[in-house]
Write a protein that binds this DNA or RNA. Structure first.
Lengths: 243, 243
DNA sequence: CGACCACTTGAGCCCTGTCAAATAGCGTGG
DNA sequence: CCACGCTATTTGACAGGGCTCAAGTGGTCG
């Protein structure tokens, strides 16, 4: 197999045919249904680069100028908000197919850190080009609006979780949510391995890592899940639902 | 003073000159800077009605079809998310000048309830018309995007609060935030009265009403605020900040 | 093989929820 | 204008869930 052009790739941002939306594996998750071939082509035209982000590295940090939004092509990220006193909270985990970076639109600077929790790859979507395209293609405009609105709804559901649920319920809800999202991406919803640490899960769920661990052990004892470190098997989803 | 046309007003939705953006008192809060008179006119054209919502009534409820977004002209609202088991959480308080309803964009149905916490008045902005306008006027498009993004950022800050702060810190942050927003609207930042009950504050902050009350009393003892029921006077904002 | 990190588990304590009772405030109807 | 009844708020006593601190285990990478 010829590997032409590979020698010209930069380490951080490359143009290549695989970065085309029209042929992307995550298309079904990223894009609206029923986009015409022409519109797809126009999308392809503005998404001309991707970027590799290694585990632990930041895609962007709080305060960085906002230029682009991103779509996770492979891997996963966490988004983290910080208080001046150093307190921080994970506000989301973003899997392949998820959008990232829309927090920067409001002020022109990012309000979160986005950190890769495994080696990952993102599409870079220059936002001013996307805005132009939105002015021309109604389907894309609506999709962008839906993405932003989904983020609003997602966060408010998380607030419900943080504000009203016990530690046990939060961990159960976390596992079920992850399970659902993995299934939507074609993975098993019953068996997967966590990319995030107990501490990151705890930060996301508003509790300490020890508490997360205890809840996993509890579910284990009760036969709801089989958790061996990061390897998770959900044995009784209905039981988790009822917690 | 003549009161022509008043007799023709409907109780729930009326057209009247005062509903024009170009002459609205909340213009500075609602609208982007530097909109041309022509663009303002086009906005006026799509916002043709307002609606009165009495205290305790819903502007919209979870599951309602999403047609329009709203701008609070006068009064205030809370938004509430609900879990099937009846558990609910206040996710925001919306004052005059704030936008409302963008949660409905993602699915076409609202995901929250929006309830008036005092007699209120909103502009009704049909969303499909706003989207059309966004395709034509870049300044308005950007403003809509910023509004949605702000909501995302607002919620993530609230998640930080729910996930990492003590009850005392949450109540302090709540008072300071409200104070800031009131100042931005031309009211005193030091003295105001709460439109929401202790229970609503508690729901917003993820705690019980008794805890809210205790924190108010504590701040009172420490000379940070003077709280007599809903009447609040902030005596030492720096002290609150440091809590 | 060793160092390091993530994870698990235990013991004790504190913050906040729960339950209960008293007080204050507010709107309504006489 | 006042009395009444309701709701909102305050305050206290107590219990429990989750945090803190600590020790020990397991897994991974150099």
């Amino acid at each position: 197999m010829p590997r032409a052009l590979n020698g010209t790739s930069s380490a951080t941002a490359v143009n290549r045919p695989t970065s085309r939306c029209s042929s992307c594996a995550m298309r079904a998750v990223c894009l609206p249904q029923g986009l015409s071939p022409l519109d797809l082509q126009r999308l392809d035209a503005i998404i001309c680069s991707t970027r590799m982000v290694r585990q632990g590295e930041a895609l962007y940090r709080t305060g960085d100028a906002f230029q682009s939004m991103y779509a996770v092509r492979a891997g996963s990220f966490k988004t983290v908000v910080m208080h001046r006193d150093g307190r921080e909270q994970v506000t989301g985990f973003h899997l392949a197919g998820d959008a990232l970076g829309l927090d920067g639109v409001s002020t022109g600077h990012h309000s979160f850190d986005a950190i890769a929790i495994e080696d990952s790859n993102v599409c870079i979507i220059p936002f001013h080009l996307l805005e132009s395209l939105c002015r021309e293609v109604k389907g894309i405009q609506q999709h962008v609006h839906r993405m932003m609105s989904s983020e609003i709804v997602r966060e408010s559901v998380l607030m419900l979780l943080l504000g009203t649920m016990s530690a046990e319920q939060r961990v159960a809800a976390f596992l079920l949510n992850l399970s659902t999202r993995l299934r939507a991406r074609g993975y098993s919803s019953a068996e997967f391995n966590l990319r995030m640490t107990r501490e990151e899960i705890g930060s996301y769920l508003g509790m300490k890592l020890e508490t997360v661990s205890r809840m996993f052990s509890k579910f284990q004892r009760e036969g709801l899940v089989d958790a061996r470190g990061k390897q998770i098997r959900i044995l009784n989803p209905d039981g988790l639902e009822r917690v």
